[in-house]
């Protein structure tokens, strides 16, 4: 694995999850040993969609390799790809020049439910790493196979077995058919709204949320991460068509579990549980999945 790191760092600027201030954050790394295997504090979306940027220029991007991103966070980019790759030039430029080395979690994290959405072993990846003690099991996509000259590249059977075992430890939630089970008039939307303070944490923490606001600042035109729970989001001259907070929260979940599923055949959720962890009032996306809508 060290050799892989060395080979990659010849072609890319290397970044990784590192422990700082008692949190796991992302920063430049110069050796594999610096990379933390712990789950990062946040999904590192900013590698591909910046929090705030000028959209009047598209600068050529550095080639970057990001080590230690967890599978749930990486999967977010594969879901975003279906909507914005080759449409959003900023995302596309960075996406094409960024290599992600995702670390598969050995054990389920508290609250996470990635197994419900095909994790933690991903079907799509650049380089996927599963560490068992001192053994690294590695899978590489064709594009990055060249970094494995002389290294053993796992044929995937280890991963299949691991996945089976992981699923017994984190039993997948029943997500099949959620898009038709979920109810527009369910009382849960109003109940969520009674608690929600519109902080935007669910959007900012979500590895799959990509919406932004566009605004002018002097002679620059900028975009900034946005939140669909805010009333100014997608506002028209007549205001937001989803006037109530309950309607906006419902929109968020319908986008994830109904609209995206119907248009792209995927749920727009990776089971990372980050929106739950960062929500100050305990709104739990798992409740949207497991709620019994049958009598509503």
């Amino acid at each position: 694995m060290e050799r892989v790191f060395a080979a990659i760092s010849g072609d890319f600027e290397t970044y990784g999850a590192v422990e700082k201030e008692g949190e796991v954050l992302f920063d430049r790394v110069h050796s594999l040993a610096e990379v933390s295997e712990n789950r990062s504090r946040y999904a590192p979306k900013e590698f591909l969609i910046r929090r705030n940027e000028n959209v009047l220029y598209l600068e050529e991007q550095q080639r970057k390799a990001v080590f230690g991103i967890k599978s749930c966070d990486l999967k977010g980019f594969y879901l975003m790809d279906r909507q914005i790759l080759n449409r959003d030039p900023f995302y596309t430029e960075r996406r094409n020049k960024t290599l992600f080395v995702n670390y598969v979690c050995n054990t389920p994290c508290e609250g996470g439910f990635c197994s419900s959405f095909g994790g933690p072993v991903l079907d799509e990846f650049d380089i996927q790493v599963l560490r068992e003690g001192n053994d690294y099991h590695i899978m590489a996509s064709d594009k990055y196979d060249k970094y494995f000259n002389g290294c053993r590249n796992d044929d995937g059977s280890y991963f299949t077995d691991f996945k089976r075992k992981f699923n017994t430890e984190m039993p997948p939630l029943k997500v099949d058919g959620l898009e038709s089970r979920i109810k527009w008039n369910s009382p849960i939307w109003k109940e969520f709204a009674s608690r929600c303070i519109s902080c935007g944490a669910c959007n900012y923490s979500c590895p799959t949320c990509y919406c932004f606001d566009l605004y002018d600042d002097g002679d620059e035109r900028k975009r900034e991460w946005d939140s669909c729970v805010l009333s100014g989001f997608t506002s028209s001259s007549a205001g937001n068509i989803r006037n109530g907070l309950d309607e906006r929260l419902r929109q968020r979940f319908y986008h994830k579990f109904v609209y995206f599923k119907k248009s792209k055949d995927e749920f727009l959720c990776t089971g990372c549980n980050r929106c739950v962890e960062d929500c100050p009032v305990g709104i739990d996306i798992k409740e949207v999945i497991t709620h019994d809508y049958s009598n509503e």
Binding site: I197, C199, A201, Y204, E224, D278, C279, P280
Partner: peptide, 10 residues
């Protein structure tokens, strides 16, 4: 405990 409101985030 890791939480913020909209003013902290945005």
């Amino acid at each position: 405990a890791g939480k913020l409101c909209i003013k902290g985030y945005s």
